[in-house]
Write a protein that binds this DNA or RNA. Structure first.
Lengths: 344, 344
DNA sequence: TTTGGCACTCCTGGCTACGGAGTGCTAATA
DNA sequence: TATTAGCACTCCGTAGCCAGGAGTGCCAAA
């Protein structure tokens, strides 16, 4: 902190500059402030104040004879100290409710699309972390001689299925007995805790072959999601409406990063640990290519535990309060929905 | 056809203009042609020929003192009559083979990403049409009292699973008997032919309740894909490298259309019917917003039947022969892969 | 039918001029 | 000491202009 605290007028001016710049995308002039917001002082006074805010690092001037624009630090204090939290509009609330009403297999993707539309920005959602899943049931289904399908059910629902082929004939009854034995032993344990040892034990107990064990192991492995969860994204075209993307090159780096996923995950990773809404502004994203963007991230839960994130990526000049409200509201609905659908 | 047939020299000039323009993105001048390709005539002669080609509708001039650019008709005759079919490069061939080596649940999405990368354009792939799927197996799995999961297996593999809850207790044995009965009656029939009547018959036979019937019906319904198959897309950011997208607005309409899916499907719909590779150029796409784009589409098969499409969308100025080779090669690998994975 | 030559058109980039927007500073004022 | 009116100054954006260049169309000759 360069300055322990902003006096009230400076704080108001900073907040107003952010507000106005978010609305217009034009550098904010001292006169604009005195005209549109009743400061009770002249534009000259505002100019002095703005010069001090710039010296303190909260504002920057694109060029000598231009108005002021918030810096990363300016946005940061706006978000932390100055802005009024917003509530969801009733229209948005209804929109979210309606969207969650019609169920779907791919809840995460549907949520991403919804958030993209509501925010008019690029939305992305991490799929549920596997650690939170409880193993519920496995079923080996014989489809044809020496061919079968393994289905794994977790507390989130069916989380994996895989085809397998065997080198020897195994009766449908044996497959059923194997399923039952594993279910009896492992039901309701954390999915991540069920390793090859459990499988091997059960298979050996029933005197079945290695190929059966392999099939089962593969099925459980694909049920445990990869360490970097998949990320669904939607709404990239919304960014094109923003003047900051008049230059195509900006967009290219973003699309590349979205396709890569890894960088996106790094951005939200610490928010999922802290289990709190997070706002990252410009350089805070730790990536030069994303330096004039911001990301709002809100966790969603399964029971008490945060298991994934809803994020909105847009120009740094974004309506933070509104987007936080949107993401929070959507995350809440998603969490409730997951809880309702839980397999107990 | 304005002209029954182009004489050899005109054809060569047209082909060269297309080739050169695809390579450079600059209008092609008469002198460029005489210098880079040995026509054996002077630039003045070429100018005369080009003027005639323009009068016949094969070329257009962006402005008076500029070189020539192919028109839709120019590209069309190039694609139909003039261009040399290309074979896959060994590098591309290896790339495709390697990519199909490591299996994946979402074969269609992986294929889309591969094609996007190879073509450096936007690739999209329609998911397999449901009509071609044969019903193989259904399994009702009891997970908890009054709760279960229904899994439907078709010749493509597991194609749907759905959670169900019952109002009355039904024993696990009854669920198994029900599964077996339906399997016995319907195995290897076309999925689309298995309607509510079959389900109702089997349920009644075993004396089970309406809620069981409902669960089963729902599961089968979600196995039958919707009439407009889902379309996976990848590689939009590749388009940004093309000079025709220096203007951001172009890109916006494309991204919107990709998100909508419906328009994309209309574009490939007739190709899937004719079961042949198809090239649509500019206005042939039937959409003003796409007028300076082209789409190359190739069907992929399951057995003898075309069940879906691989498409590449890019600027009209695209390397048609190369993209056709890429799409065909990828489609072939995908078809082979589907055949190998078939459940018989 | 082909071709060299040449005038003509249009695009492009660089240069200058100019009006407008907004600031910083100074000096006067409360 | 804080505020403010006034004014000079800086920089941007746009328009206009000019020169250079690219490429054509056409004519007349081979």
């Amino acid at each position: 902190m360069k300055q322990p605290r902003l006096d009230e007028r400076k704080a108001y001016i900073l907040a107003t500059v952010v507000y106005e710049y978010v609305a217009t995308a034009e550098p904010v002039a001292s006169q604009t402030l005195t005209q549109k917001y009743n400061l009770g002082v002249s534009s000259a006074t505002v100019r002095n104040e703005m010069a001090e805010l710039e010296a303190a690092g909260y504002l920057v001037q694109p060029h000598t004879s231009a108005g002021r624009v918030p810096s990363d630090a300016g946005y940061r204090t706006y978000v932390d100290d100055l802005m009024q939290p917003e509530a969801l509009t009733t229209a948005d609330r209804r929109r979210i409710r309606d969207d969650f009403k019609d169920a779907s297999q791919e809840l995460d993707e549907q949520t991403t699309r919804l958030l993209g539309k509501l925010s008019k920005s690029l939305a992305f959602v991490t799929k549920p972390k596997s650690e939170a899943q409880l193993f519920k049931h496995v079923q080996l289904i014989s489809i044809a001689p020496r061919t079968g399908v393994a289905v794994v059910v977790t507390s989130f629902g069916v989380s994996a299925q895989s085809l397998f082929e065997l080198n020897s004939d195994v009766s449908a009854e044996d497959l059923t007995r194997l399923s039952s034995a594993l279910n009896a032993r492992c039901a309701n344990r954390a999915l991540r805790d069920i390793g090859d040892a459990e499988v091997a034990g059960v298979v050996a107990e029933l005197g079945l072959g290695d190929d059966v064990r392999g099939a089962l192991t593969t099925a459980l492995q694909s049920a445990r999601a990869s360490e970097v969860p998949e990320i669904a994204a939607a709404g990239a075209q919304n960014l094109l409406d923003q003047p900051e993307f008049a230059d195509v090159r900006k967009l290219r780096s973003i699309l590349r990063i979205v396709e890569e996923q890894r960088t996106l995950y790094d951005i939200v990773a610490d928010a999922i640990v802290s289990d709190n809404p997070s706002v990252k502004i410009g350089h805070e994203l730790g990536n030069e290519e994303l330096a004039d963007l911001s990301v709002v991230t809100v966790p969603y839960r399964f029971g008490p535990k945060a298991i994934g994130m809803l994020s909105i990526l847009g120009p740094r000049r974004m309506p933070y309060a509104r987007l936080l409200a949107l993401a929070s509201g959507t995350a809440e609905s998603l969490s409730r929905r997951l809880a309702d659908a839980e397999i107990r």
